[in-house]
Amino acid sequence: MANLKQLAAKEDLLTGGHRACAGCAAPIIVRQVLLAAEHPVVVGSATGCLEVTTTLFPYTAWKVPFIHNAFENSAATVSGVEAAYQSLKRQGKYDKEVRFIAFGGDGGTYDIGLQSLSGAMERGHQMLYICYDNHAYMNTGIQRSSATPLGAHTTTSPAGKVIPGKKQYRKDLTAIMVAHNIPYVAQTSVSHWRDLVTKVKKALDTPGPTFINVLSPCRLGWGFKPEDTIELAREAVENCFWPLYEVENGVYKLTYKPKEKKPVVDWLKKQTRFRHLFKPGNEELLAKVQEYIDTEWEKLLQKCGVE
């Protein structure tokens, strides 16, 4: 793999001047992904922050071919692009080697686009689907999704007098994608560029459909300072809220193990969406957040064969 210096010398395929918030992780993720690609790529995106901030007509931030269709169909749309490619190539009407990447936020992937994603993965298209998971519908103003963690305040799971934020645990989308028995599934974070770039490269080199779930802190939705994006993502990895791992042909591999598993409270305290958890009376909920992380981490270690 190219080192940081070599990557930095490559052309940025998502240009500056887009309208993403200061501190938004999504464009950082996209730039890392595009740096990892060694072939020309065609990119699709679901409706969401990434799409609206990069394609405001008559401008575009994309220096690669890009398509946005609707919210729930990024995977189906890119599967159509890929089908055109396969057909034209087979007929001798096209001769380039191209890779296909579909992006979606957690709303467009865990929720409304899950069927479209599942179908595309099952059909075996040569495409990489990347979910930038920021834990809620940030583009419409921070509504809860099935990726929102337990206890988080969002505008549709508000911390009220009776209900302390989101009542449910997160959906484990990465596990659902593993269950599709596709050749490559991974989880990574915007904070770990080498891990991310390595996984994207691996996915793009894999024949068949691949999926990567990327943690993408949202400074508005999570409530932190824009300069802390990468730090918040790193801490989520260090406290095992967001483990870095990959599943290659069904074989689990932990790609990063924190030296010391930190308690989640320090991370929660840095985000206003969890502020209410520290009020008297919510101690039990706070404990449940930690318990869930512990349980899931242990399960993952077992799957990865790590002591």
Binding site: T77, Q115, S116
Partner: peptide, 21 residues
Amino acid sequence: VTVESEHSAMSACVGASTAGA
């Protein structure tokens, strides 16, 4: 493309059409 719904059928058609097919 044997899609999993008509919504995806038309979505894939749009993708393929914009890819020149």
